[in-house]
Design a protein around this nucleic acid. Structure first.
Lengths: 232, 232
DNA sequence: CGTTATTTGTGCGTATGTATA
DNA sequence: CTATACATACGCACAAATAAC
């Protein structure tokens, strides 16, 4: 089967842009010109140009034409898997407690309201690599069954209550000194600085529904993100 | 002006998905059924469904139908501005030197080849917030003029040599202890742990063309990223 | 100021191909 | 084999924005 025509036009124009034939700011030939050049219809050309627009390579202006845009190198895509498949997970405890200041502020609740606190350790054959803490506002009838929680992903914890599409999450990366239980479980000296990943889950009304902290053992290495154009 | 028909269909189906009328895994009505429902043509429906597909909300299977997919909560978008607009930038030095091991390995060069090393400080009215180090393989005739480099973004440094679209960058976040010149400039004690952002620039052949390290003063706070669906 | 040509935006009808059940 | 569903592609018409005259 021959390659679809619109795909051919798409990759041919894309190639021309990547090779510098059209530079950022340049106008592409009009739809009609391209249709003539590739000996096809305007509809097909529009499909190809639409794909280039989706990839943020060109932008169309009504009545003017299509223009090559400046690529975005400031936006990075971070792939962060809640469940690292190379690591085993072990539940440490589930406690019902009155939140400390950090958790209060993250979940927008007052000290009188209790929260469920869950600690998990993620480890490989050699050592404990991550210490994961999660906090959820406690409500009566909440399932505290260990097995349910042990393997649950962060968004899974609340997905039954709201539509998965309504949830969005925020991730923050910071640095913190490990103390007490966390230091002991990661087998680090008290006060050692480690990377910390903070996770915030919000529902469709922007209300915080969960808060998590994850302490990374130094041997976990770096967190990586990418920018630029990638296939797929 | 009335809203375009295809936009109406798009947002109406999207709303239905977000409200849980169609759940992840569900099949949407067929193109023909939707065309009948909205009293329009199949072409228009395809446009709307194509938009939903671009937003990774549905996926079509040839001969089967359109299916609601599970939202991706593991991919985060990091917006990282090389030039923080709230901060002033000051060039500290430009040196030509033989690279240390870390830089050698990052740029895939051997110790005999020299690199241009550039240090900048980014500061606000109160204090120095960032210490930025960049390394570029040195080539004869390279412009070392300070003014050119002082305000250059990371990708700008190489954009004249290759197409901007061919460049892609990687970002890593780690933790490191500040020493020597860096510690002094950030006014931190030797050995203090700080967040470090590593940047790698690659050309179209995946060859490294620049390497950067950026030490963040603790007062810079956290790095944040988002996941889920956002308008625009 | 309006006129006109150009360019993109929206929308319909139709035909044929191909994958799935 | 057949019915259904999506994929590709063409032609046409009109609307709306832009720019040049």
């Amino acid at each position: 089967m021959a390659e679809a025509l619109y795909k051919h036009v798409f990759s041919d124009v894309k190639r021309a842009i990547f090779e510098g034939e059209y530079k950022p700011g340049d106008m592409l030939p009009s739809e009609n010109e391209l249709a003539a050049k590739y000996n096809t219809s305007r509809v097909t050309i529009r499909k190809s140009l639409g794909m280039l627009e989706n990839e943020r390579i060109v932008k169309s202006w009504h009545g003017k034409g299509y223009f090559v845009i400046e690529p975005e190198h400031a936006k990075f895509t971070f792939v962060y898997e809640e469940h690292n498949k190379a690591l085993e997970s072990k539940l440490q405890y589930i406690r019902l407690l009155h939140p400390e200041a950090e958790v209060q502020s993250a979940l927008h609740i007052d000290p009188s309201q209790r929260v469920v606190s869950i600690m998990r350790i993620l480890y490989n054959t050699k050592k404990n690599m991550l210490c994961d803490l999660m906090y959820l506002p406690y409500q009566k009838g909440m399932p505290l069954i260990e097995m349910e929680i042990q393997y649950a992903d962060f968004p899974d914890l609340v997905k039954n209550k709201v539509s998965t599409f309504a949830i969005h999450t925020k991730m923050e990366i910071g640095i913190a000194a490990v103390t007490g239980e966390v230091a002991k479980r990661l087998m680090l000296e008290e006060g050692t600085s480690v990377l910390v990943i903070y996770r915030y889950l919000y529902d469709e009304m922007e209300r915080p529904v969960a808060f998590g902290k994850r302490y990374l053992h130094p041997d976990c290495g770096h967190l990586t993100a990418h920018s630029g154009f990638f296939p797929g």
